[in-house]
Amino acid sequence: MTITPEAIALTGPGSGARINSPQTESADNDLDVHLRTLRRRVPHLIGSAVASSDGLLVADDLPDAIEATGIAALTAALLSVSLTFAAATHGADLHEVVLDSGVGHVVVYRAGPIACLALLTGADATLARVHLEARPVVRAIAATLAPAHHD
């Protein structure tokens, strides 16, 4: 799967900075552990990123060739549009979005009310395995970030 700098430039880069939250360093470490766990457990995973619902980068495990702040912005935008679409068509909440480009997948999960997780996979990834491994991690990420929402 190739995400080019040109594609990110067309949509606009992120802010260039990670969000600063009142979370402790242990929360940041927890997020990094969750992303590394996904890397180990999901075959053909290219990388992952946690973004705030407004598109700021919270954490990532992406290759250097992929601009993480741009992915965070795109992830939040995709989730926002998808939430609106789901509400308009089904009157229900949305949990995840899957894009299949033919050369890979982008899977975006809603991680509570303030964050989302994006996974980028190669074409050989099995979506059932991706979901099996990612859904518990999404719940853990939501729990990790929830205290900051209530402060």
Rank of each mutant, 00 (worst) to 15 (best):
D124S: 06
Y109A: 06
T37K: 12
L83H: 08
S53F: 05
A65V: 08
S80H: 13
L31P: 01
I66C: 04
H90R: 11
V108H: 11
D61S: 09
L31N: 02
S52F: 01
A77R: 10
L62S: 03
R129V: 14
A59P: 03
A92M: 07
D30K: 03
D124P: 00
A88Y: 03
L62D: 05
A49L: 15
G47F: 07
L83R: 15
D32K: 13
G102T: 06
L38M: 15
A88L: 08
T75S: 08
A123M: 01
A76P: 10
S48I: 10
L132T: 12
R18S: 14
I19D: 02
S48T: 14
G102S: 02
A86R: 07
A125T: 11
D32H: 12
V137N: 04
A17L: 10
G104M: 02
A134H: 04
V103D: 14
G70L: 11
G91E: 06
T121L: 05
E133I: 01
Q23P: 00
I71F: 02
V33I: 15
G55H: 05
R36S: 15
V98N: 08
V103Q: 09
A115R: 07
V107F: 07
T75L: 01
S82C: 11
L74G: 07
L94R: 08
R40D: 15
D61Y: 02
A128Q: 14
S80M: 11
L127M: 11
E67W: 01
H34I: 07
R18E: 14
R18Y: 08
V81F: 05
G55A: 05
I66W: 02
A118E: 04
V107R: 12
A65W: 02
G112E: 10
H131A: 08
A86F: 01
R110M: 12
L62G: 03
G70F: 09
L45E: 12
D100K: 03
V97R: 11
T84Q: 07
S15C: 05
A86D: 06
A134F: 04
V137G: 02
V108N: 10
A128H: 13
T37L: 12
L99W: 04
A134Q: 06
S48Y: 04
A115T: 05
G122D: 12
E67F: 00
Y109D: 06
A86E: 11
S48E: 10
D30M: 05
D30A: 11
F85G: 08
A72P: 01
R41A: 14
I19C: 03
H131V: 02
S21I: 14
S52Q: 03
L31Y: 01
H131I: 01
R18V: 10
T75A: 04
L117R: 08
T75G: 00
V33H: 03
L74W: 01
V81S: 08
N29D: 13
V81G: 02
V107G: 09
A65N: 10
L117H: 03
A27M: 14
A88H: 06
L78S: 14
H131D: 11
L74F: 00
E133P: 01
L57S: 13
L99R: 09
G55F: 05
V97W: 07
Y109Q: 02
V58K: 09
L56H: 06
V58I: 15
T24V: 06
I114K: 12
V98S: 08
A118K: 00
A115Y: 04
S48N: 07
L31S: 02
A134S: 14
T24Y: 01
F85K: 09
C116E: 15
P22E: 13
E133G: 03
G91M: 05
S21V: 13
D28R: 06
